[in-house]
Amino acid sequence: MNMQDKPILQVKNLTKQYGPGCSICTNAHEEVLEKNYCPHCRTVYACRDISFDVYQGEILGIVGESGSGKSTMMKCLYFDETVTSGEGYINPYKDGMVNVFEQSSQQQRFIRDTILGMVYQNPMLGLKMDFSSIGNIAEKLIAAGDRNVNRMEARSKELLEHVHIPLARMKDEPKKFSGGMQQRVQIAKALSNNPPILLLDEVTTGLDLSVQASVLDLIKKIQRELGISMIVVSHDLAVIRMLANRTIVMLNGTIIEQGLTDQILEDPQHAYTQQLVYSLI
């Protein structure tokens, strides 16, 4: 990876708060907050000043405990949530010259449909459980502007095979599938529009270990073959160790440490990261 290259995604000072904030917490931020919560006005600062870059073909890991803000950040990147403030630039969209967070909802939908893929922790957020699996994939293709039924069917079959779903079951609804199979259908759907950037939010949580391993293998294989840039969110450092080139550690809505994954695992600087790493050994 050539660091001189322009990042495919740049996020600058992304902030997401729930609540208006008050003179106490906006002025004296850190001191008055309990973790990321203001006891005076009850505002929750889910993400505070998050900045990072993702490069072409790289997997960026984001690790942190529940409530650290990592899933909120992913929802902001996929426009499921509106940011409070901050900038986001995606190179394939208008040459990375416009802040995507300020684009119209129509433009944001276009970015979702053509540039981003998202795999949610809960497959019910990413799939229509009563649609056939092939129908779920076609839905994303239609959103991206495809109208050719034969081409969509061929692409859907190719993707289901790619994620090891037997074609004999392509007409089955995801509600009839196991958790691991549902995640694989979600991955197929997310890949259908050839997105340059794939967002993966806790995709192995709640799966058996053997199923987790097969989903992680699949993600690595896809990344290798297609050269997609990925952001992988997990509270599990073992997942991050297996997938990510670089890692960001989040705590209470802020980034407390970032660097090459090996570096963070071998020589963690922050007390919280040290605790995370030593619990893994």
Rank of each mutant, 00 (worst) to 15 (best):
Q10A: 11
V11Y: 06
V11K: 05
T15K: 00
Q17W: 00
Y18Q: 04
G21R: 04
C22I: 10
S23A: 13
C25D: 05
C25V: 08
N27E: 14
A28N: 09
E31S: 15
E34A: 11
K35P: 09
R42M: 07
V44W: 12
V44A: 11
Y45N: 09
D49A: 11
D49I: 10
D49V: 09
S51Q: 02
S51L: 01
Y55Q: 14
G57R: 05
L60G: 03
G61T: 07
S68W: 00
S71I: 04
T72H: 03
T72M: 05
M74R: 00
D80M: 15
S85T: 11
E87S: 10
P92M: 14
P92A: 13
N99G: 07
F101P: 02
Q106E: 12
Q107T: 07
D113H: 13
M118W: 03
Y120G: 01
Q121W: 04
P123V: 12
L127K: 02
M129N: 14
S133A: 15
I134T: 15
A143M: 15
A144F: 12
G145S: 08
R147I: 05
V149W: 12
K157D: 04
K157T: 05
P166G: 08
R169D: 12
D172N: 11
E173H: 14
E173V: 07
Q182M: 14
V185K: 02
I187Y: 01
A190C: 08
L191M: 11
N194E: 11
N194A: 08
P195H: 06
P195A: 11
S210V: 13
D217M: 07
I219Y: 01
R224M: 13
G227I: 07
I228Q: 02
S229G: 09
V239F: 14
R241D: 15
M242D: 13
L243V: 10
L243P: 11
L243N: 12
L251A: 06
T254H: 04
I255S: 03
I255V: 15
I264N: 00
L265E: 08
Q269H: 06
H270N: 14
H270M: 07
